[in-house]
Simulated assay, not measured.
Amino acid sequence: MNDSIRYNRQIILPEIGETGQQKLLKAKVLVIGAGGLGAAILPYLAAAGVGEIAIVDDDVIEVSNLHRQVIYKNSAVGKHKVDEAKLMIAELNPSTKVEAIAEKLSGKNAISLFEQYDIIVDATDNIAIKYLINDACIVTNKPMVYGSIFRFQGQVSVFNYQNGPTYRCLYPDENSQSANCEDAGVIGISVGIIGMLQANEVIKMILEIGEVLSGKILVYNILNNEQQKYDFEKNTNIVMNLEAFQKKYNAVENQVEEVVVEEILNEIDNDEVLFLDVRNAEELPKINFKNGIQISLLHLENEIKKLNPNQTIYVYCQSGIRSRIAVELLQKHQFKNAKSITGGALALSQLVKEKV
């Protein structure tokens, strides 16, 4: 199909024109995450004619994703998100080149990946990964398009744009314990709106039009349709270079040992181990281990003396994100045998039922 026909409605905009369309064609965008935010970002970037898009996500599609990750079909459950997203884009706009990377972003691959793209889009719901993305963007001098959801409220900003303020300037506390979508709950419309606002920032940067959300954070509430923009300044005391990046991420990655529920089948009645639930008290499902204890992640450091640093401790939350943070915290306090349970409480509750 002739591109002039495909993109006619945007080419006739004087701010875009043929020149702008060529800028889109030459652009290379890396999207981290193919979940709810990614499901809104990806089709709009592809439809606009962005020439190259890479998608990084090691996750597979689950039924519980479908209410908000609307680019996936029920028949795709169990398949890799990046592969299905690539198929969707090929159907939508076959002229967009797509690279599907079914890997987890890490300190080992972030720098080499980011160097290949013009703009990096954060479509994750993991706080630790957001700091990793931010730091790798600083090292590679790439802008980071940020999006975040908490229940009915979303945030959008652009970090490290033309040496502007970064994620750490806005959120200096790396030990934040914010819940992700799975733990806090989310409605699909929220991620759709925020994801499209992120795509809008990407397109504005490519076209060099409008006002980029650099040094500003947009907060949008879908329940009352109110939105506010807040300014924030660059913190010049924050230093992140390649040496600091490698020291930080290559030193800590892979230190958290993770176990799947099948591996601990024989430990459920073992009095010598402890199952530590770091969820909040009201979270379901409840799991009653005779060798279990509940201390929310928020209070773990203050109540750490309740735990034996020499004991094997299996830590779980709802999904496996907070449990990893908890294990890292325990390790800082010289706990040598703390392990995070992959799949969290849902996987554990199923295991307990099967054992009974």
Results as ranks from 00 to 15, higher is better:
248 K>R: 15
270 N>L: 10
204 K>D: 04
213 L>N: 01
195 G>D: 07
322 R>S: 08
116 Q>I: 01
117 Y>C: 02
252 V>C: 03
192 G>E: 04
354 E>R: 15
7 Y>Q: 07
70 V>G: 06
177 Q>N: 14
215 G>H: 04
94 P>L: 02
163 N>S: 12
37 L>M: 06
116 Q>M: 12
327 V>H: 00
193 I>W: 07
129 I>A: 13
280 N>C: 04
323 S>L: 05
32 I>L: 07
307 L>I: 01
108 K>N: 11
36 G>W: 02
257 E>P: 00
319 S>T: 04
150 F>N: 09
322 R>Q: 10
19 T>R: 12
327 V>I: 13
332 K>P: 08
115 E>T: 14
33 G>W: 07
105 L>D: 00
316 Y>L: 12
280 N>H: 13
299 H>C: 11
127 I>T: 09
325 I>A: 13
154 G>N: 07
57 D>E: 06
265 L>R: 14
189 I>P: 13
65 N>M: 07
197 L>R: 11
58 D>A: 15
201 E>L: 03
202 V>R: 03
275 F>E: 11
188 G>V: 00
217 I>M: 15
51 G>N: 10
295 I>Y: 12
4 S>H: 15
103 E>S: 08
130 K>R: 15
336 K>I: 00
273 V>D: 06
223 L>S: 09
298 L>T: 13
265 L>G: 06
130 K>V: 05
63 V>F: 12
99 E>R: 14
62 E>W: 01
225 N>V: 00
255 Q>F: 11
224 N>T: 03
3 D>C: 07
293 I>P: 01
224 N>H: 07
33 G>D: 04
23 K>T: 06
260 V>D: 15
199 A>I: 01
20 G>A: 02
352 V>Q: 06
94 P>M: 04
268 I>W: 03
207 L>K: 08
256 V>F: 14
18 E>V: 10
283 E>V: 07
278 V>S: 08
219 V>F: 02
161 Y>K: 05
96 T>C: 14
109 N>L: 04
279 R>Q: 06
202 V>N: 04
229 K>R: 14
219 V>S: 14
48 A>P: 10
248 K>P: 00
222 I>S: 02
319 S>F: 11
98 V>H: 07
182 E>K: 13
195 G>A: 12
295 I>R: 10
242 L>C: 01
270 N>Q: 12
197 L>H: 02
346 L>E: 00
